[in-house]
Simulated assay, not measured.
Amino acid sequence: MSQAYEYVTIEVTKKKPKKIHWLWRIPAMIYMPLVALFLILTGLIMSLTIIGFFFALPLFTIAIPIAVYPFAPGKFKTYKVTCPNCEKKTIVYQDREDYKCPRCRIPVAIKWQNYK
């Protein structure tokens, strides 16, 4: 037997992006993928030996987030929202459509407003 929930809607205003954010992003789009490529190539060379393979695994796992992070700037912004039912504060990522409150298990829809 499934329960039917009514969505409660809250409005959250997006944060205004900082100008310094764009200043570091342009060089990061160039240098961070180069660092990731260096780590991957170093990991490939190290993985040719059995002992080096164990040291190469962390290089591979670190290289992927380093290469992806500059190209996804808004995906890692977090917002602290309050459940309108039980007043529990929860952290959600930007542009998420809804979340389920961890305390009262009520689904809460989020309506995003652009900054003014």
Rank of each mutant, 00 (worst) to 15 (best):
L39E: 01
A67I: 06
M1F: 15
P84K: 11
V81G: 00
G52M: 03
D95W: 08
V12H: 01
F76W: 13
C86Q: 03
L34E: 10
K14E: 08
K77F: 09
T78C: 07
V12W: 02
A4K: 15
T61K: 03
V8F: 07
G43Q: 01
H21P: 01
A63F: 00
K19G: 15
P102V: 12
I64Y: 12
V12A: 01
A56T: 01
S2L: 11
V35K: 00
P17V: 04
K88W: 01
T13K: 10
Q3A: 14
K14F: 01
I20T: 12
C104A: 09
G74A: 10
Y69W: 15
I20G: 09
I110K: 03
R96F: 05
A56Q: 00
T82V: 12
P58L: 05
T13E: 13
P70A: 10
K18G: 11
T61W: 13
Y93A: 11
G52E: 03
K116H: 10
L23R: 11
L37H: 04
W22N: 06
E87C: 13
K18R: 14
A56V: 02
N85T: 15
E87N: 15
I106Q: 11
R25I: 02
F60Y: 06
R103P: 02
M32Y: 02
I64W: 14
K100S: 14
P84T: 09
F60H: 01
K77Q: 13
I40A: 05
F71S: 00
M1T: 13
P17D: 02
Y99V: 01
I50Y: 09
P65N: 10
I62R: 00
K16G: 00
F53A: 15
G74N: 12
F38K: 03
R96H: 11
L41E: 08
P107R: 12
P73W: 02
N85L: 14
Y7I: 06
K89S: 14
T42Y: 03
I45Y: 10
T13V: 14
E97R: 13
G52I: 05
T78L: 08
G52C: 05
A36S: 11
L34M: 15
